[in-house]
């Protein structure tokens, strides 16, 4: 009887996975008209990644991505519903139509572009590596044999596992845990987008960004469901239109200036009108 139980269990599991693999549905998400008609756009944002997407002490969504999201909703004439998302779930929420749009510091990569469609960029970043000032890491080769902390599903994870396989990766689901691990000395360094580590290092004396720009210069783009040409067209026109009024510089002043300091240069991060 035990054998029979196992056989049926395995068969059942196989069925479930086959079912999810066959999910090649042809729907491409909601069009602009459908969104307008429902009077609500659903946007996935981070809820714990200050200053890009976070929830403030009054329970309100704030940040660079959220500022942009609110403008999109205003220009569409609809309300916005924010859905909190973890980094690794950003493709999945689009794939399963849980949201119309992802504005969650989503770096455009060729791998991701196969699964979702990216509109014009609104920000640019490279990787940065932060470590203890007393044991500063200034070149990625120094990390060979050492432990590097990263967050699952970020570009840092793919970059280091492809280019520096000798680096031991300590992976976390959440940024809060990754930073805590670095402070607790569970790794020698932490790598993610340079904007993020730069802001963190300013506030944490004793830690310094030894590598400010690593890997390719990446762009951060709004992501939508694969094949949603209708929403893509509207988004790209919107981004170009916003460029003429320097919208993203205003966004920078409102959300990022306080974090990166008075001397920081908005042009090193902001992309206007989709032109790098």
């Amino acid at each position: 009887m035990k054998k029979a139980v196992w056989a049926v269990l395995v068969a059942g599991l196989a069925l479930i996975f086959a079912g999810s693999a066959m999910a090649a549905k042809n729907d491409t998400g909601r069009t602009v008209e459908q969104i307008k008609k429902s009077k609500e756009i659903v946007i996935a944002v981070f809820c714990d990644k200050k200053p890009f997407g976070y929830v403030d002490e009054n329970g309100e969504y704030q940040g660079y991505d959220v500022y942009f999201a609110n403008r999109i909703a205003k220009d569409l004439g609809v309300k916005v519903k924010f859905v909190p998302v973890e980094p690794a779930a950003r493709v999945e929420v689009l794939d399963t139509n849980k949201v119309d749009l992802v504005l969650a510091n989503f770096t455009k990569t060729p791998e991701r572009a196969q699964k979702v469609d990216f509109a014009l960029p609104y920000m640019k970043v490279a990787l940065g590596v932060v470590s203890k000032e007393s044991a500063l890491i200034t070149a990625p080769e120094q990390l060979n044999g050492k432990t590097l902390i990263i967050v699952k599903g970020t570009t840092a994870e793919t970059y280091f596992s492809e280019n520096y396989p000798k680096v031991k990766l300590l992976k976390f689901e959440m940024y809060a845990d990754a930073y805590k691990a670095l402070l607790d000395g569970r790794g020698d360094a932490f790598s993610t987008d340079n904007t993020e580590v730069l802001a963190w290092a300013i506030e944490n004396p004793g830690y310094k960004v030894g590598i400010e720009s690593l890997g390719n210069l990446d762009t951060i783009n709004p992501a939508i469901k694969k094949g949603n040409a209708n929403l893509m067209k509207w988004l790209n026109e919107e981004i170009v239109k916003l460029g003429t009024e320097n919208f993203f510089h205003a966004d920078y002043e409102a959300t990022l200036r306080a974090v990166y300091g008075a001397e920081s240069d908005a042009n090193s991060i902001v992309v206007e009108g989709g032109k790098i």
Partner: peptide, 20 residues
Amino acid sequence: FVGVIEVVKIGQQIIEGNRL
């Protein structure tokens, strides 16, 4: 992990909001 904000996540939001 399925997008429901409960007590631990709100705790993490507070920690993140104040991490600097």
